[in-house]
Design a protein around this nucleic acid. Structure first.
Lengths: 296, 296
DNA sequence: ATCGACTGATACCGTCTGCGCATGACGATC
DNA sequence: GATCGTCATGCGCAGACGGTATCAGTCGAT
């Protein structure tokens, strides 16, 4: 009751060959069923598509019109499964990536460049979210991959460190420590005014700060959640802050970044997080791309 | 070995319903063959398209990709026969129309406007050719419809008069006849210098001129094939010419058009000519449009 | 004018696909 | 843990579809 792709393929072959016999040969079948196929198509279309003569067959105007449509249909029908297979293999499709504000400064650019190079047919959709929101959206499938600081305790997630960097001290340019030495020592911070992290909203940075300060407890003059706010306060001369090194990409006026003596190890990590049982096959391919990234 | 439209329709139904049973109901079939249909599609695509659970089925990423393609395919498959049928009925398609230089001045504009109004989906392809060339191209199918003066003797053509007009005299503005009276009389032409038509290249006009002059034989100072050349010579003051009234649309400087006394009948005709056994169904529709045109 | 060669259409037959019915396997829910 | 609802599977049969043989028409050569 409706047309079939076989009928269209038969019709196209006859139209191109101008000859039922040769068309049948091309389709690796015999002529009689091909004739019937085209007749059936004509009945279903409700119009003659071919003029049959004793020398072969030629297109009617309706046939000309249908030929173009039939070619498009057959091309689509051939391409559609291939493209679906590519999506299944993770070579094409969509990848929803979440990232934190500070992640944008360190690896996001390289991640995207690498994804573009390795997975050119994957459309990466980006969203900036704090860590907790990213985990929520990973859970409900709105994100495929998160870039965040904290290691999620939840068992359904898997994790890979994609970036390590050092904590550095951000000093107001007029601060005495900025004038005197090249490196800041931990002890110098003991009697400094310090802008520190909000223990809930920026728990990771807060705990990391406490760890690297090794018991030294500077005066905390302000607690903020965002690294950016922190730098604004430093620029205003309100105190010193500890920030990830990659923040230096911003070149904040009035702020000097100094390494801290005795902190050689890159301790601030950024993790890629994804669902163990995620369904998007692009994730696996993207993680391959991320691993080559880390090797450099 | 290849996908079928039925499989795609089944897949789309399941994808939209999220449920094999309801999808089967929508397709007016039972659930088991639908399940097998989708399974087969998945084998042929080479990827899982649906995640089956005990609550229904949801799309995999590959399924999402294929769903979009499948919808496009099905829409095309539904539209293609309709559009072919419209072409077969002459409601859509191409119409190659030939016309002579003078036809362009009289009815071509109205013909095209009418065609656009009555047959909006027909693309009209225009070509200006002399009558003989038009007949050749009608014969070999490069033209569907000709607009020309002469009635073809050939039996394979059919004809319909689409325009009638009068012959008028084209006078140089400084010519005595232009100054004296409103109408020119045939007798006045007897001793006038006259620019006349080439008896082979413009046979129709030549014979018509002879007929309307009723035995009066003016001096023929020049013979030309094109009405336009004729007017150029009139403007140059070389003589009088007889031209179809519609040429007045051109407003040649230095030329005055005057009706001729005793020529009341519109004698110059323009005919639509087409092949008796032509294959393009648009022709019949176009002739319908032309007949309504003539009634006005 | 006749015959032969070639065109697509038709008749007939066998197979294989694809449907429906009955039922199974599995998970969710109470 | 019984029950309900999901999709998958086994089986039998009708119909679709392809292949072989043949027909019918047209064209061209003899």
């Amino acid at each position: 009751m409706t047309i079939s792709l076989d009928q269209l393929a038969g019709f196209v072959a006859v139209a191109e060959e101008g000859h039922f016999g040769r068309a049948a040969e091309r389709l690796r079948m015999t002529q009689p069923p091909l004739s019937r196929q085209v007749q059936k198509l004509e009945r279903e279309v409700g119009a003659a598509l071919l003029d049959r003569t004793s020398r072969g067959a030629s297109l009617t105007p309706a046939g000309v019109a249908l030929l173009a449509e039939a070619r498009r249909l057959l091309a689509l029908a051939e391409a559609a499964p291939r493209s679906a297979r590519r999506v299944a293999e993770g070579r094409a499709g969509r990848l929803a990536v979440g990232f934190t504000a500070t992640a944008a400064l360190s690896v996001l650019g390289r991640v995207l460049a690498e994804a573009d190079a390795v997975l050119p047919d994957v459309v990466v959709e980006l969203g900036e979210h704090v860590s907790a929101t990213q985990l929520d959206r990973l859970r409900d499938g709105r994100l495929d991959l998160g870039l965040l600081r904290e290691a999620p305790v939840d068992g359904e997630f898997r994790t890979r460190v994609v970036h390590r960097e050092r904590f550095v001290a951000a000093l107001p340019v007029r601060h005495p420590l900025a004038a005197s030495a090249r490196e800041v020592r931990v002890a110098d911070l003991a009697d400094a005014d310090m802008i520190s992290y909000d223990p809930t909203a920026a728990r990771y940075f807060d705990e990391l700060s406490a760890a690297v300060l090794r018991g030294v407890r500077p005066r905390s003059v302000q607690r903020v959640a965002q690294v950016h706010s922190m730098l604004a306060l430093v620029a205003a001369g309100r105190g010193i802050a500890l920030v990830p090194e990659s923040i230096g990409a911003l070149h904040w006026d009035g702020v000097t970044l100094r390494p801290v003596d005795g902190w050689p190890d890159p301790v601030v990590v950024l993790r890629a997080v994804w669902r163990e049982d995620g369904t998007n096959p692009v994730v696996a391919r993207a993680l391959d791309a991320l691993s080559t990234l880390r090797e450099r």
